[in-house]
Amino acid sequence: MRGQANPVRAYGPILLMAAVLGALPLLAASNTLLNAMVLALIIALAAQGWNILGGYGGQFSFGHAAFFGMGAYCTAILQTRFGVNAYIAFAAAVAVGSLVGLAIGYLSFRSGLRGSYFALGTLAFAEVFRILANASAFTGGAAGVLIKLDVRPETFQFASRAVYFWIALGLVTAVMLVNRWIERSRFGAWLVAIRENEDAAKALGVDTFAVKLKAITLSAAITAVSGAFYAQYFLFLDAGIAFGPWISVEALLAPIIGGLGTVFGPVIGALGLHFVSEMTRHVTGRIPGIDLVLYGALLVVMVAFARDGIIGLLMKLRARLAGGRA
């Protein structure tokens, strides 16, 4: 898929998937289903952000909550404290999120943090933000921030969940298209080269520092979009939601389950995980944590038996079928 020369074959499947999913609210407009889908798409966005840096670039961040939370808090605070228009607040949140990504990336990569060290460093940044947001009066402290309910299109609030769903789907699709474009670009090739062997990439003249910095900035921007949209959809957040470890874990889990370093991986992973978690809740009732037990077990099983995720399994299946025919 990666070296696809034909643009229709490269971008077509993405638009097809968007069209199929976009028809969903017209077929089944149950609020529960749409609610679950919107949440899954928000996670998909965060995961798409993580996938740029972790999946293509091989830099595993354990603290993408830092970017998610920055996006969420900026959107909320600009609106509640400064009366900024919701759309401008959204754009500003993404800008701030990417700047935070740039700053964390600059500090971490400048000091040569790699592998486990990078994972730990990002985790620590997210924790610092969580503690600060929880303690400072500016962010509403432990009580959190509540965006005033004011359902008008001008305030980025809609009565119908279908509208949120379509916006979320639009964002996810846009990121997929950008993602595919990166795959086909020189920048994408450098990023993969760094993942495969950073020293070799450097020796061949790739400016690894600049490439990694670009990747983390873009990655943070996408995850900040996810956080900003979360705030706009739920209209409430606190430090535990915005900067908590849950979102860091989901953002890395979805691409690993779906397929690391692929366009569809994070989206399929996020939708799949949420389907599984809804199903477990359905079967076991409301036992807290049981869906997460399954997430953790899935993570171990995928790492042990299917390094390339669901996408990898599908590709293997296709190769086997094609091999049978030939």
Partner: peptide
């Protein structure tokens, strides 16, 4: 056995284990 001797995998496997243990206790 499940990490095939790769550092990144070990990181993920222990993360998975921690999620399982913590939430099994919660459940």
């Amino acid at each position: 056995p499940s990490s095939h001797g790769e550092d990144r995998n070990i990181l993920l496997v222990t993360l998975g284990l921690s999620i399982v243990i913590e939430n099994a206790l919660l459940a």
